[in-house]
Each structure stands twice: as C-alpha cells, then as structure tokens.
Design a binder for these strands. Sequence first.
DNA 1: GAGATTATTTTGACTCGTCAAAATATAGAG
DNA 2: CTCTATATTTTGACGAGTCAAAATAATCTC
Lengths: 221, 221
Amino acid sequence: MPSQATEDYLKHIFQLTLENPHQLVSMGDLAESMEVVPGTATSMVKKLHRDKLVHYEAYSGVKLTSKGRKTALRVLRRHRLVETLLVETFGLDWAEVHEDAERLEHAISDKLMERIDSFLGHPLTDPHGDPIPASDGEMPTTKIHRLVDGVAGDKVTITRILDQEQAFLRFIDERGLRPGTTVRIEQTDDVGDAMTVRPSRRQPVTMGRAAARKLLVEPAG
Amino acid sequence: MPSQATEDYLKHIFQLTLENPHQLVSMGDLAESMEVVPGTATSMVKKLHRDKLVHYEAYSGVKLTSKGRKTALRVLRRHRLVETLLVETFGLDWAEVHEDAERLEHAISDKLMERIDSFLGHPLTDPHGDPIPASDGEMPTTKIHRLVDGVAGDKVTITRILDQEQAFLRFIDERGLRPGTTVRIEQTDDVGDAMTVRPSRRQPVTMGRAAARKLLVEPAG
DNA sequence: GAGATTATTTTGACTCGTCAAAATATAGAG
DNA sequence: CTCTATATTTTGACGAGTCAAAATAATCTC
C-alpha cells in the first residue's frame, strides 16, 4: 500500500500536469501545491522515483510513470466519489467538502468504494465537474480545452474547476462561473496577463491567466 | 488534534477498561490489543501521560483521565456511527466493517459526523449493540452485566459484543449469539474456565471465560 | 558571456511511532 | 525468605516525512 503522503504527491503531480500538459512539474510548483518546502519535495520525489512511480531527472522536473498514474487515478476516484457522496447524500456545501474528502480518500477500501459507487448510481462527474475515473483506473478521455487558450469572441461552457481551494471556489461561485455555465470571452490581454469573460445575464469577470488556466471548458453553440 | 495513534491508544484503553472495570490496564494487555511490543506501549503511554490523557504509574498500569475519556468517546462515537453507516446504508456485512471503520474514524470532521448522524436518524446503538456516545461526549450509562458473571439457570439477552475481530464476530454469528438474542446459561465450570449457554431453538454453545467476558447482557424475562 | 538572481539539491537535525534486546522490577514457588 | 519466572521499562536504532539553511546548478540581465 502506498502511504498517504505518497498518494498525495502522486495526486498533486497528476493535477499539476493537467494544468500544463506538456511540461514536467517543477519542484517549486509541487512544493507549493503540497505546502512543503522545496527540499522536502525533492526528497520525496526521489523516493517516488526509487519506487518507479515517477520519472525524475535532477533540475528538470517530474512526471508520472504509468504505474504512478494508475495510483493517482485510484486516489482521484476515491476523492471524487467521496465528494459526490458528501454533497449529494449528506448535504454538505460544494465549497466545503474538500478537506473531509482529502482525508477520507486515504481511508476507504476498494470494496467500500464500489458500494458507495453503486449507492450513488455510478456518477460520471463529481460536484466540481471533474470526471470520476473508472475502477479499472481508466478515465473518460474527453478532449481538454482550457479557458486560458480561448480567444475573444469564443463562447464556451465551463466544465471543470481544477482548483479545490475554498477561496477559489467561492470566487467562482460568487461570479456565476460554476460548471455548466456558458460564458463569452470578451477580451484577452496579453500584456496585462488577464482575460475577461461574461456569463449570460451577469457582470463580466476579469481574471488573471493563472486563474483562467484552472477552468476547463468545451465549445458552446 | 490528537494523532491517529493517540486516538487508537485511548480507544483501546477505554475498551480494555470496559472488560475489567476495576483494574488498571496493564502494559502487556494494552500492547497485545494494539499489536505492538510492550516497550512501545510503555513509551506511548508516557506521552499520553505527559499530555494528561491518562493516569500512569510505572509498573502498576494505566487508566484514562477525564480528558482522555472524552477523547476516547469522541473516537468511539465516530467509529460506531461509521459502522452503522456502512452496514445500514452501504450494505456491508456486520463482521467485515471493522477495518474500514477503524480508518474512517480518524478522517471525519465533526461537521460531517453530525450530518451522518442525522442521515441515520440519530441511532442509539451500532450493529454490534454498542451504544453510540452523544456528541457532547456523554454515553448512556446503562448498567453493565457481563455474561461471564451469570450463573447457571440465568436467562439473559445479549446486548453487546466487546470484540470486533472478524474471527470472533463470525464465531458469535455462526452460533446464533448476535445482540438481541436471549440465551439460558446451562452451566458454568470454574475448573474448566468455561461456560455453556443455549440460545433458544439452537445448539448449546460452550465458550471460555475470556470469550464470555466479551459479551454483555441484560436480564431477560 | 559574466555576474546576479532564482530554483534546486544537499546536509543535518528533528518528531513520531515503531522494534529488538538489555536492564530492571515484581510476583510466584518452594 | 530466596530464587526463578514473568512483566515492565530502558536503551539504541530505524524509516517516514518534515524544516532550516548551506551548497550548487540553471537562468536571466545587461
């Protein structure tokens, strides 16, 4: 069994890779995301490499091996099913389930997980719009479009939020950018590193590129 | 927050005290119950003592302080509510829920716990007949009778099973000794350290005193 | 392309929970 | 009451995961 810490590192590497698909994950980003000092990230990544869970080359960065990805997807499956359970069954709020799910994802046996999956009726996505990997570890590979890659005039539907921080989710929520919402990209500002989008019947929202990178979309009518 | 290990030690001390109410818990028993070597139990108990969670005197034994008991009861509440959830809602078997519950009990916030409690309709006992402590940490103090203290001729109803090991629960299950069952004490054998009980319409069951100590009962008709 | 800045890695130290085995205390037998 | 068996505690070690700070590599800036 991988330790909790191992599962967490793999999950974070997986998620960071999603935000920037064609780059290795840097120690700095990983450390920030895990909330540890960079040296800790380096030493943990070396252990993951020793266990063949990641590819790692000093000073260049890290990415998952297929073994590592498989483990990450199992963790993600548990995380997302748990979040769905907490919201749908126990009525917790969209923005506040992350912390509980964060701990519960390491404490649930495969058998229990499958029972929960049946109980929920085999949901395909969690409350944040994230797809729930299947129990064989495979994930529905829908093509991924990032809001940040859109251009002015595009109309897109928000499908997923890649950051589960309460503060970020509240930002999204308050401005009407939940999964399912369709928005028009009003303008993009290379110099200002920002873009402005307008959800229908709502105020336009301007956000930095870093934020826009965390929203996934699909083209809308 | 107490660590997982701390919560586990407190819980085990609580349970061992229940089996033998008027004695301190010995390091040997605690170590066996925690499945660690005795030295580990000693050193952990010293930390619990340092944190004012237990009373401890070298070479004599250990018992909970009121602070320790409060913590133990919170863990027990989570454990028992989780077991109830797993059996009632997710349909897991009576005998197989212990391990999952063992991990989940450390991973659930107070808020989530209260939601689960409501979802389940505020149950008073878990599937093993163990009372679920209230959220304020208090437990319905019903008078405790142990099967082992009964005498031949007594008719008693089994109310609780104090051991959650799969093997023991299967033993109980197969012989028809689940909580709720009424049995007649056929004979007690001081020398053989055994007693024989007969559940209605069933074969008599002979068990050792150590086993009989783990069954709590109440006088029946 | 040389020096300054930033990122990464290394080193040494620390806590937690554990074990093995040695030292010591307690309890039991005669 | 002494000797032996058993229980407990102590000691030294370990792996996991972490931090602080020093050393080193990579990257920018001019």
